[in-house]
Amino acid sequence: MSQLTISPSPHIHSKDSTTSLMRDVVIALLPAVICSFIFYGWREILVMGVSVASCVLLEWVITKYLLKKPSTIADLSAVVTGVLLGLNLPYTTPWWVVFIGAVVAIGVAKMTFGGIGQNIWNPALVGRVFLLVSFPTYMTTWKQPQGLFGLDAVSGPTPLGAIQEGLLSGASVQDLTAAYNYRDLLFANLGGSAGEVCALALLAGFVYLCIRKVIKPWITLSIFATVALTALIFWGVNPARFTGPVFNLLTGGLILGACFMATDYVTSPMSLWGGVIFGVGIGFLTMMIRYFGSYPEGVSFAILIMNSVVPLLNRWFHQKKFGRK
């Protein structure tokens, strides 16, 4: 000891850091990433690689040369955005389209607002939605994949897409959903972007995050509950026109969105009740878009719309204060 250090209390800190939390999110996403590699093969690896690499590179370039601030890539948040964007794209997406998605996600949705913690909308979702409206052909075309280990996995349109098309041509929901069984839905084997296809792997990651106390389950559970309830009501009234609760829970990007996108710290409410209302809003809007919208899938839009309401929810809902009414 040569010199005493003086600082105010507390003098110790928990082991949590932004980096450790983001590392946990990456770990939680790994099962889904590995599944997608197995199902879709080297092209999915390419999509994921380009997505993660460009997100990290773009954040580094922007902080260093445009903002002239210390780089923030060590906090791993750009990696999380990259993995989420990768999981949100079909494995057939050309590398340059993935790169444009990364530019929009990191460059526009994250860094223009001031970087980590400042953005209003989930960066990966902004990137995905931008690509969806700008390059619809790439984003909705599904080809026969060549999985790793010769695993013959997926073909055809997504279940939600197939049903919307089928309904337009006059078929009933019962006939259309007969093609899917729930085991397939749980274990993937269906058309969709990488992260839409393996429900179990995603749910395992979600449970990991809850156990590690990285996130709390309320937002996710209220999304699932609202989706199930809304679907139950509509399906109960007209099963020929509307798909049912289990089908809606297991298809599309719902699980990925509810577990990993809606729970993004920066773009979700801080308080318990704010989070529940946020989740109910996402669940309800998702079902409205699925049932009545022109897109077959609505999770991304629903989350982005509810992201916009978060500042209001944070203003309206507060913690219960000690000893105050």
Binding site: I12, D75, G115, M270, F322
Partner: peptide
């Protein structure tokens, strides 16, 4: 306390995780 135990890490941006509000025993934010 040793340096490893007590020296503070540099401050970075708030990620709005709400851990401070969860930890506050007075229910403050």
């Amino acid at each position: 306390l040793t340096a490893k135990q007590t020296l503070r890490a540099p401050e970075s941006g708030c990620i709005r995780c709400g851990k401070c509000a969860d930890a506050c025993p007075m229910g403050l934010e």
